[in-house]
């Protein structure tokens, strides 16, 4: 149990996928302007990343390793993740229309999200077992959502302050992202 707790702290704080591994920066800057889109995206990522972590682990362990095709994992994972996202989109559109309405527009964005691919590859590199892999994927996704929501909260507050002209928009966004990353790196050594 303690091991899982450490893994969780590590994935969310110490090795935050967004702020310290710098994966998935596109949605980090793209959908963090408003709190509600940020939470929507965060939830969609948690959902997909957990599923993708599981499926890719299975594909790697039971398909690529037996055929000694480990070097093809990147392309195989991209294929699997893309298919998975499409598949999930179809299923929830049919089965849970309200959920589809809520997550729908964010799902296609995740198809090509490097954070999802990154987590799948980390799972393999770190030689996690299935349960750990699923748990790690979930925790990483939570870290992603946390960073996104933090960023959105900050960006909403930009409206309150006088920002020099040159810093307006993406510039201040990037500076802020950098500062949050710096702050998060303070967690290093926690685990």
């Amino acid at each position: 149990m303690g091991e899982f707790l450490l893994l969780m702290v590590s994935a969310i704080l110490v090795n935050n996928i967004l702020l310290l591994r710098f994966l998935g920066n596109c949605p980090f800057l793209g959908v963090s302007r408003k709190m509600d889109t940020a939470t929507g995206m965060g939830l969609a990522v948690i959902f997909v990343m957990t599923l993708a972590g599981m499926i890719t682990w299975l594909v790697y362990r039971y398909l690529l390793v037996p055929l000694s095709l480990e070097y093809l994992r990147t392309i195989a994972f991209i294929l699997v993740i893309a298919t998975l996202v499409q598949f999930v989109e179809m299923v929830i559109q049919k089965a849970a229309p309200p959920l589809y309405e809520a997550l729908g527009i964010y799902l296609p964005l995740i198809t090509t999200n490097c954070a999802v691919l990154g987590v799948a590859i980390i799972n393999v590199d770190e030689r996690y077992d299935l349960i750990t892999a699923i748990f790690f994927s979930f925790a990483s996704a939570c870290g992603f959502a946390l960073a996104l929501v933090l960023m959105a909260g900050l960006r909403e507050r930009f409206a309150l302050v006088a920002i020099p002209k040159a810093f307006e928009g993406t510039a201040i966004g990037l500076v802020t992202a950098g500062l949050i990353a710096l702050a998060f790196s303070g967690f290093a050594g926690l685990v």
């Binding site: 398909l63 690529l64 095709l69 294929l79 893309a82 298919t83 499409q86 559109q93 049919k94």
Partner: peptide
């Protein structure tokens, strides 16, 4: 060759799966 077959296979399975899904989960 195995690599090509494997990736092709994954692609094939994926597309068949999506094809079936698009029928089954057709809205």
């Amino acid at each position: 060759l195995t690599g090509m077959i494997a990736i092709g296979g994954i692609g094939l399975v994926a597309s068949i799966l999506l094809g079936i899904a698009s029928k089954v989960f057709y809205v």
